[in-house]
C-alpha cells in the first residue's frame, strides 16, 4: 500500500500494514536542505523541497504546508516580522485590530491574491504534481482563537473575553469565513487533510473554550468536511482541561501536545478518535537518545491503542539529532496499529 493509502485506510478504520507516521517538521525540514528559514516561509519551492526530502529521508507518510502562524494575518495586513533563521512572527505592539472598530471594514483577503496564502496554494499544487499519488498532502489553517489572537494581539484578546464578548464573536466569525475560504482553495489545490492549528485554545479554561471557542472550531471542522477535506486538529500546550470538547468536534485526527497524557485523552474521548503524538519534542526527541525515543513512543502507542498515528507532541525541533528522529520513524515502520 502507498503511504497515502495507508493513512486514508487507517482513518477509515480499515486494516493497514503498519502505523502511519506524520510528525510535524518545519525548521527541521528547512535545515535538512540547508535553506534559510526565511526562504522556507516565503518561497513555496523551498518549502516543498524541504518537506519532500525530509519525508523521503525519514519515511514519513505525508508532507505539509506549515511554516509559521502568520500566513493569513499577513494577508489581512497585520504587521509581521521576518527572520532569517526562525519563523515569521506577529508584532503585537502594532496589532491590526488594536482598534476594534477596524474589524468592521476588514475584508477577507483573496487566498489567490498573490500573498502568503497564495504561496501555500502553490506549494499544494507542486506537491500534487510531485507526490500526489504517493503521499498524504496536508494544508493548514489557523483556528478561531489562534487567528483572532494574531489579528487582535493575544494579550488583549484574552481580556476581550470578559470586556467585550460580542466583539470576540464577531472576530471569530470573520476568522471562520476567511479560514473556510482558504481551506476551500487548499482542497481544490490538492490537500487531502487540512491541519487546524488553534494554539491559544490551551490558554483558556473549559468555560471560555466551550462558550466561545468550541462553536467556531466546530463550524470550521464541519465546513472543511463539507468541502471534502479531512481535519487534523493541533492545539499546542496543555489541553487537559478541554479534551472532552475537542473530542466532540468530529476531527479525523487529534494531534496532542506532550502536556496532555494520551491515557487521559483516550479515557475522555473514547476508543474511536485517531490520536497523534505526543512525546516531548524537547526533552525526549531533541535532548534524549534513540532508546529514550523508542521507549517513549512505545508508551504513547500503548496508551493511545490501535487508533494511533506516530508523531511528536509538537514540531520536531530544528537541531533534533537525526538518529533520534530515525528511532521515532523506525517504531512506526516496524509496528502495526
Amino acid at each position: 500500500m502507498t503511504r497515502r493509502e495507508r493513512v486514508l485506510a487507517h482513518l477509515a478504520g480499515q486494516p493497514v500494514d503498519r502505523l502511519p507516521l506524520m510528525p510535524i517538521t518545519m525548521m527541521f525540514a528547512g535545515s535538512l536542505i540547508g535553506a534559510r528559514y526565511r526562504d522556507y516561509c516565503t518561497d513555496y519551492r523551498v518549502l516543498v523541497e524541504g518537506q519532500i526530502r525530509t519525508a523521503e529521508a525519514f519515511g514519513f507518510d505525508y508532507v505539509n504546508t506549515m511554516s509559521d502562524p502568520a500566513r493569513e494575518a499577513a494577508d489581512c495586513g497585520a504587521a509581521v516580522e521576518y527572520f532569517d533563521h526562525q519563523p515569521v512572527a506577529l508584532v503585537e505592539g502594532q496589532s491590526l485590530l488594536a482598534d476594534k472598530a477596524r474589524l468592521l471594514s476588514l475584508k477577507v483577503p483573496d487566498p489567490r491574491g498573490g500573498g502568503r496564502m497564495h504561496n501555500a496554494l502553490k506549494a499544494l499544487e507542486l506537491y500534487q504534481q510531485r507526490v500526489g499519488k504517493e503521499m498524504i498532502i496536508e494544508g493548514w489553517v489557523e483556528g478561531p482563537i489562534a487567528e483572532a489572537a494574531d489579528l487582535r494581539g493575544i494579550n488583549t484578546l484574552m481580556m476581550d473575553f470578559y470586556d467585550d464578548p460580542a466583539f470576540v464573536r464577531d472576530l471569530f466569525a470573520f476568522v471562520i469565513e476567511m479560514e473556510l475560504r482558504f481551506a476551500r482553495e487548499q482542497i481544490k489545490a490538492g490537500a487531502d487533510i487540512i491541519g487546524v492549528g488553534d494554539a491559544a485554545a490551551s490558554l483558556v479554561g473549559p468555560g471560555i473554550y466551550n462558550e466561545f471557542v468550541w462553536p467556531y472550531e466546530k463550524q470550521l471542522v464541519d465546513g472543511i468536511h463539507a468541502l471534502g477535506g479531512r481535519v487534523r486538529l493541533h492545539i499546542c500546550g496543555n489541553t487537559r482541561q478541554i479534551l472532552e470538547g475537542m473530542s466532540r468536534l468530529g476531527c479525523d485526527i487529534i494531534d496532542l501536545d506532550s502536556l496532555a497524557p494520551l491515557t487521559e485523552a483516550r479515557q475522555k474521548m473514547g476508543p474511536d478518535p485517531v490520536l497523534l503524538g505526543n512525546l516531548n519534542p524537547v526533552t525526549i526527541l531533541r535532548n534524549g537518545n534513540p532508546d529514550d525515543v523508542t521507549r517513549a513512543i512505545a508508551e504513547c502507542h500503548r496508551q493511545a491503542g490501535p487508533r494511533f498515528i506516530v508523531g511528536a507532541g509538537c514540531e520536531v525541533p530544528r537541531d533534533t539529532p537525526h538518529e533520534n528522529l530515525r528511532a521515532l520513524c523506525a517504531y512506526a515502520h516496524s509496528h502495526r496499529p
Partner: peptide, 11 residues
C-alpha cells in the same frame, strides 16, 4: 489549581 486560566489571571 486549574480554576483560573490565562484570561482570568490577566484581568
Amino acid at each position: 489549581a486549574n480554576e483560573y486560566f490565562v484570561p482570568e489571571l490577566l484581568i
